[in-house]
Design a protein around this nucleic acid. Structure first.
Lengths: 340, 340
DNA sequence: CTGTTAGCGCTTTCAT
DNA sequence: ATGAAAGCGCTAACAG
């Protein structure tokens, strides 16, 4: 009446061999297609596998072959739409390759990141994908000596390492240019933590577009945020507290733009009627904010695919292709011509 | 001048033993604290480990000990804020345990889910966390015979299996009750795919609250969505196309509420002035929509932690604790007293 | 075409 | 307290 508490121990390749009346190597050969096997033996083995519900022990395979068929992915935050999109690309890139992935988070901390990478190396992953890493290039190259590694958000080029970088300067330039073309001259910038390279580049693009239009950068129009909603909202408060006048806001990322939007709403300032707002990233949700957000699109998904393809190429010793779609301005409904 | 193309092969425990002038077993004992070792030998070994930058090969350990120190997590969508929060809980729950996790996606498809679980079993994960799984209980129990498995979104109780379920009926009841108390009587419901149990339960809660208030359920006030923004927006269109009058909308999840919000905006209908809106989930972003969304909070993070604790308990044979915080109504700014 | 043999790197009796 | 030896489950020469 009662089910057994424990299942039978998983059957091994040797069990299968015995059951089918052949040698272990024959079973292995069938499993891997390594050599020709007579049809009758093949049938017998297949039948035994079926019957015993056998599946090869990947740990044993990994130990023997020296490859675990696992790749490691380092993100900075497992619960972020930003990384989500990239991960989706990675997942699709891995589909059908037999590789599985273990995802760890560096939490935007260089030291933790290094530990996590070490953990991945210890787990014998066949390669590493580093997303928006904080650790130095020298550290990466050191790890690259052990496993191939690809990274986003940085240039990087070596026998066992490859980096992908987007032109954030230009992305920001496009955003601000768009605002200027709409007649805005007093444009605030919500920036991010000072140690974030991408954001620093966006600041450069902001400055460049302004200067080019003969507009001086006003420090009172720049506020720092944590790149999250809360920070964006606080930045709007800071901007108003600083007393500057402005008719448009360029936020360093979509999340902080969402927060800024709410900060504006709280003050009864309408978007886009009273204030234009541009974000950066084009997260999936940005097409559904109210109103839909004008933003600079990062090809997150494509980045995930590309970076994965590059890693696989590195692992297999084939040439890596490194084309990445460019940043792109997506004009939606939070920007509008400035009314005198 | 040029760096070596390939690093030295990773050093093994045997290398360390040789270097330190002891036997492999001694090194192993020091690594695992399995037995007392004299201080001088210990020093020598530690020095050798340090110098050779040695780290044990986890594949070999796994093969030998029969446990991989890896757990498998099955989600339905890697790029979803819903799963993100739960994963964050799982991640925190695993912190410091030495376990790493491999995450796979079932894409809301029972068959794919079964395959993915089989993959995890083949990779010898020590346990499985199944989030919002689609596969049948019998299938789960079959897998549970091989590895302990815990699941969310379903009751489940066995020696090697444990499920966690929230009271979605009651959650929906609270949401609709809130609307009724605000004077709303014509309350639309944006539902989800028919095969989603949680959503079906929410529908029951919706119906129950209405009936209890003497309000008959009007089929014209129920529209189906895909539980994403696009579906929510389309549902609003369908609702208006059906010609029904209503002053409030209860969406089966936050994402579709976001979409509904945009659909309303497109029609010039203000929230909450003209229409009240309630979601379900309380995703992190819901506190920052414009205006912030009234919703039913699912303890996603806590669920991740709890379910992880339960799995660890199952693995270690200790008793599983299964307390889960209840669903909770979070009143924000999308609901308001109905103006006659 | 197929079986035998020797490990992959580690842990764990079993002796000493 | 420590070393020797025997595998965990699989694959890859090496013989036939």
């Amino acid at each position: 009446m009662s089910a057994p508490d424990h299942a039978a121990p998983p059957s091994t390749l040797i069990d299968v061999a015995r059951q089918a009346g052949v040698s272990p190597s024959t079973v292995s050969r069938i499993l891997n297609g390594t050599a020709k096997v007579s049809d009758d033996k093949r049938q017998a083995v297949l039948a035994a596998i079926e019957q015993m519900n056998f599946a090869p022990n990947q740990m044993a395979q990994a130990l023997k072959k020296g490859r675990s068929m696992t790749i490691g992915i380092v993100v900075q935050d497992i619960a972020s739409p930003f990384f989500d999109e990239t991960l989706r690309g990675v997942d699709d890139g891995l589909k059908g390759t037999g590789y599985a992935s273990v995802i760890v988070s560096g939490h935007w901390d260089a030291q933790e990141e290094a530990q996590r990478i070490a953990l991945l190396v210890g787990r014998k992953v066949d390669g590493i994908i580093l997303l928006s890493g904080r650790i130095g290039e020298d550290a990466i190259l050191k790890f690259a000596a052990q496993r191939p590694i690809v990274a986003t958000g940085r240039g990087l080029n070596g026998h066992n390492a490859h980096g992908f970088r987007l032109d954030h300067d230009n992305g920001a330039y496009m955003a601000v240019r768009h605002l200027i073309e709409l007649g805005h001259r007093r444009i605030a910038f919500i920036t991010g933590p000072a140690d974030n390279d991408d954001v620093a580049e966006r600041m450069i693009g902001y400055t460049r577009a302004l200067r080019e239009a003969g507009i001086e950068v006003d420090p009172a129009l720049v506020a720092e945020s944590d790149l999250h909603e809360a920070g964006g909202m606080a930045a709007v408060d800071a901007l108003f507290a600083a007393g500057g006048q402005f008719s448009a806001i360029f936020a360093a990322n979509d999340l902080s733009a969402y927060g800024a939007r709410l900060g504006l709403y709280r003050r009864g300032i309408r978007v886009p009627e009273d204030m234009s707002l541009v974000g950066f990233d084009d997260l999936p949700g940005s097409a559904y904010t109210t109103p839909p957000l004008t933003t600079v699109r990062q090809p997150l998904y494509e980045m995930g695919r590309t970076v994965t393809g590059a890693l696989l190429a590195l692992i297999n010793g084939t040439p890596v292709a490194s084309v990445l779609p460019p940043l792109e301005l997506v004009v939606r409904e939070t920007t509008r011509q400035r009314l005198v």
